[in-house]
Amino acid sequence: MTDLLSISDLSVTVRTPAGPLHAVRGVDLAVGRGETLCLVGESGCGKSMTALSLMDLLPGTARRSVGRFTFAGRDVPARGHGSIAALRGDRLAMIFQEPMTALNPTFRIGDQLIAVYRTHRRAPVAEARDRAVALLERVGISNAAIRLRQYPHEMSGGLRQRVMIAMALMCQPDLIIADEPTTALDVTIQAQILKLLKDLQADFGMGLVLITHDLGVVSRIADRVAVMYAGRVVEAGPAATVLGRPRHPYTQGLLDAVPRPGVHRPGERLGTIPGTVPSLIGGVTGCAFRDRCRRSVPACATTDPALAAVDGSAAVACVNPVPADAERAA
């Protein structure tokens, strides 16, 4: 598959009073047309910073450095024609976690949808409105023409997230980046929104980068997954391989920590990852996970392992990975 978006050696450093915080440390990512890539990890692992840097939406205190950045086969310049700022909302769109803060509360949703379209297309208002109505209906909102006249506060969280998705689709983008799009929603709504994203992806052939902390979501929607820890991708590959036969001790630890009917008996103790995430202020030497890792060896203190291929299709950044034939359910 030719890559729709690819970025190499992405690093993000955030200025803090205590010194530079290395939020993202040398990440390579690629996503193809029609493909879903999930970035998964816990708070502070750098997944949101990665997403924001793909969209060129980093806060002013953050600085980005990139090796190579291509979109649709072309190098992405820092500014001007073909830059992310020019493509954003048109070829690339973003869906945020909390649609109440992402939508402007003072404008009717119709005006917001129409503005997105007319920013990028020389089109009459009527055409933009027709497209907004069609897309609201496509994302499962009934009475779309009436909804256009409503303000965001008049809608439920699930409906607002559907509006956000319709807004992302206004210019029929090639790539959607969704940062925890269902975390603020109830479980039944989550399943319906994810299903909608998957269906829309099949219809429009978009690439989808989905950021989540929920391995259940990953297993149901991802083609490929990149597990992040302390600003690094520690394991990457086809979702079924990575979740079915995790090789990085961190990935395995995450999977063991989630209660799973059929795997855990009710009331049984869950697997835990001892300790806490290390500070990324200043430098990190060796593997950032080693203090919490049950498989750490002396080399972990000195070697910062790079992603290396295992099992053919997956890659893991670990000096002492979980053996391929280990018992998983333990």
Binding site: S156, L159, V187, T188, A191, Q192, S219, R220, A240, R260
Partner: peptide, 25 residues
Amino acid sequence: AALKASVLTPDDAAGLPDLALGTVF
């Protein structure tokens, strides 16, 4: 039943459930 079906555990390669549930709130 719909709540139970909407639980996404990491075991299942079943994909996303089609919930028998309307979206009228």
